[in-house]
């Protein structure tokens, strides 16, 4: 059976470091050819809003968009 990784993200993008951790794990998993999912719940859905203007921290929506272009599957 093919390996998959599913990450559960339930915190908002600029209050916690979880977004960065999720981005880095997902990136590494995708680079290994592993099917990778993010399930966003509660405030985690804010990671995927358009028009974010965060600075000084990793940019959530740009980061996830770039990984979605590489095959990351996201469910809200």
């Amino acid at each position: 059976m093919a390996k998959t990784i599913t990450l559960f993200l339930n915190t908002s993008p600029y209050s916690h470091e979880n977004t960065y951790t999720a981005l880095k794990i997902a990136e590494a998993a995708l680079d290994k050819g592993i099917e990778t999912h993010v399930v966003a719940s509660a405030d985690g859905v804010y990671n995927f809003l358009n028009g974010q203007k965060g600075s000084g921290l990793p940019h959530a929506s740009k980061g996830f968009q770039s990984l979605m272009d590489k095959g990351l599957k996201v469910d809200l």
């Binding site: 209050s15 916690h16 470091e17 000084g56 921290l57």
Partner: peptide, 12 residues
């Protein structure tokens, strides 16, 4: 620092 945004906001 970093785990939450509190430190960055305090410094800012």
């Amino acid at each position: 620092p970093y785990g939450t945004v509190n430190a960055a906001e305090a410094v800012r």
